[in-house]
Design a protein around this nucleic acid. Structure first.
Length: 541
RNA sequence: GUCCGGUUCGUCUAGGGGUCUAGGACACCGCCCUUUCACGGCGGCAACACGGGUUCAAAUCCCGUACCGGAUACCA
């Protein structure tokens, strides 16, 4: 039998991290068993469901690349079938009409009100003392015919218990006495959750229900419905919950966008990295590996590897540097710096493009400077072309882009960093970090004259314009040549190399961190290096 | 209240009676590398909730307690 699983969110908000992980696990289970991953939107709560939520959830799933099979099922479309099922159970005597007038909706905190009521009723009533439970069929029919409103409740047997073997939590048993005669159909004819879920899962031929642990006790009710309907229940696997830092349940209302999937997408997270993070929140393959590709996850995923204890998602909304879980950030950084460049490139392209930093020339591989690409005979000892400078200095070239991205990504955390911290590599319009200016420039006033002098030196050494006129040489602006020049210059000034390098870094990139300064000179290129070394802007800040 | 579930470093976790003076990862802290650094290398700090059993032997099995979580609705 082919396994068929479903992800069934209710569209009452965006896709949050807990639901996303449920979707992931369903997806992984389907793929690992060669089954189908279905999607069902549980939009039966008309008051709270919105189309916008549905779209947001779909966006989140698309971002995570959790593609579903078959058509999306909208639960509200099946209301007639749900009603028919309830009516059938009524006709068969497995459910009954409850003529008790509907209670007024509670004010304030619903959860508290329910808890309070449950506590108050404790000991005074049993689950089976509804006065309408044993009404004769004739009387029930005639009251209904007379137009008296009623809800339909399941007639839970007095003696016995429900039992199922949860694939994560093991054997679960519950006495019927602990389950109320749940409402199947509201007095306005609206079918309720437990009924709708069971009917749809039957219709969709779901074989494995994989969902949050908050449904563990609902399962007993659902099994009762399966039994009444005469259908064998599917296999159940409940997932531990993902908790907020206060160990409370993750809530869209309370925790806001920080738990929304789209927040991570928009913050420059890579779907692959976030998926990896999510997979390890409540599941493990029992080994020490941390980085898993989607294929590896599919290959290694088992229900046995799912944990029973809840996990905490450690976000800090007030800390800009660590606004979300450390490990999520680490995964993202790890992916950014180790992913094959050609896989990373499309994401960087999108980021640069949205920041208006992308140039169409980046797409044209090697055309502009094909004449300058060195032959293999020119490879230096480090395996890099010794005379590559001409090619990589062509700012509009793909080669330059690749080299630059590879150098700067080593210290980046999100895709956003390419357009923020990395801005100076792609644009003349960048800001200076005051801390870097203070630490690397203001502390050494001599640099205000030295660095323009260094620009002149570069100009005369590498053949570009100086303030006194054009000089042409054939020396390439490459790391080793640059190093020679900078070292000589530093000695002349009787200062330390670090002073010159860090001052240059700040002037060239606006920030205090980055790759080796020699690399930075090279990828910023001679022309821009000269201009920026002469810039007086940061000195006047 | 009742029912159900859970409890290993701050966090994510490995562990299924002896190989556990409890392993890995993130974070944190040192040292190294170095022109900076949030890269890299090396090292450090840090946990079996508590109490009883069972056993030659328990983080691992059983019972109790505590704490945490979930459910308890004519919401989903």
């Amino acid at each position: 039998m082919t396994t068929r699983v479903r992800f069934a969110p209710s569209p009452t908000g965006y896709l949050h991290i807990g639901s996303a992980r449920t979707a992931l696990f369903n997806y992984l289970y389907a793929r690992s068993t060669g089954g189908k991953f279905l999607l069902r939107v549980e939009d039966t709560d008309l008051a709270r469901s919105t189309e916008e939520s549905t779209r947001s959830i779909l966006d989140g799933l698309a971002w995570l690349e959790l593609g579903h099979d078959e058509e999306i099922v909208f639960q509200s479309n099946n209301a007639d079938k749900h009603r028919a099922a309830a009516l059938r159970l009524l006709a068969e005597g497995k459910a009954y009409r409850d003529f008790t007038p509907k209670e007024a909706p509670v004010q304030g905190n619903i959860k508290d009100a329910i808890k309070e009521r449950a506590r108050a009723e404790q000991g005074e009533t049993t689950m089976r003392d509804n006065p309408y439970r044993d009404l004769t069929r004739e009387e029930s029919d005639s009251r209904a015919a007379a137009g008296e409103p009623f809800a339909i409740r399941l007639k839970v047997p007095v003696e016995g218990r429900t039992a199922f073997d949860d694939q994560v939590y093991g054997i679960q048993e519950r006495d019927y006495a602990d389950t109320e005669d749940l409402v199947l159909l509201r007095s306005d004819g609206h079918p309720l959750y437990n009924l709708a879920v069971v009917c749809d899962d039957i219709e969709m031929e779901i074989t494995h229900v994989i969902r949050g642990q908050d449904h563990l006790t609902n399962t007993h009710k659902q099994i009762l419905i399966y039994e009444a309907l005469g259908v064998t229940p599917p296999t159940f696997a409940h997932l531990p919950l993902i908790l907020a830092p206060n160990k409370g349940k993750l809530s869209k209302r309370k925790h806001g966008e920080i738990v929304s999937m789209t927040t991570y997408r928009d913050a420059g997270f890579l779907a692959a990295a976030f998926r990896n993070f999510l997979a390890l929140l409540g599941w493990s393959a029992g080994e020490e590996q941390e980085i898993y590709s989607l294929d590896e996850l599919v290959e290694k995923f088992t229900l046995e590897g799912i944990h029973r204890s809840n996990a905490m998602f450690n976000f800090h909304p007030d800390d800009p540097r660590k606004w979300t879980d450390d490990k999520a950030i680490w995964f993202n950084a790890e992916y950014i710096r180790t992913m094959p460049l050609d896989e990373l490139l499309p994401f960087v392209k999108a980021e640069l493009r949205s920041a208006k930093l992308w140039r169409e020339e980046y797409d044209q591989a090697g055309v502009a400077m094909s004449a300058d690409i060195p032959s293999t005979a020119d490879l230096g000892p480090d395996g890099r072309p010794a005379t590559v400078a001409a090619a990589i200095q062509e700012i509009g070239s793909r080669d330059w882009l690749i080299r630059t991205l590879d150098a700067i990504r080593q210290r980046f955390f999100t895709l956003k960093d390419f357009s923020n911290q990395g801005r100076a590599y792609f644009s003349e319009d960048f800001d200076f970090d005051p801390a870097a200016v203070a630490k690397n420039l203001s502390k050494f006033p001599d640099l205000q004259t030295w660095l323009p002098e260094l620009a002149d030196r570069f100009g005369s050494e590498f053949g570009s314009q100086t303030e006194t006129g054009a000089v042409a040489t054939d020396k390439a602006f490459t790391e080793s040549e640059i190093e020679t020049v900078v070292k000589a210059f530093t000695e002349e000034k009787g200062t330390k190399l670090g002073v010159i390098m860090n001052g240059s870094r700040t002037l060239l990139t606006g920030v205090g961190v980055g790759p080796s300064m020699l690399t930075v000179f090279e990828i910023v290129g001679l022309d821009r290096t000269l201009t920026r070394l002469r810039s007086q802007i940061p000195w006047n800040l």
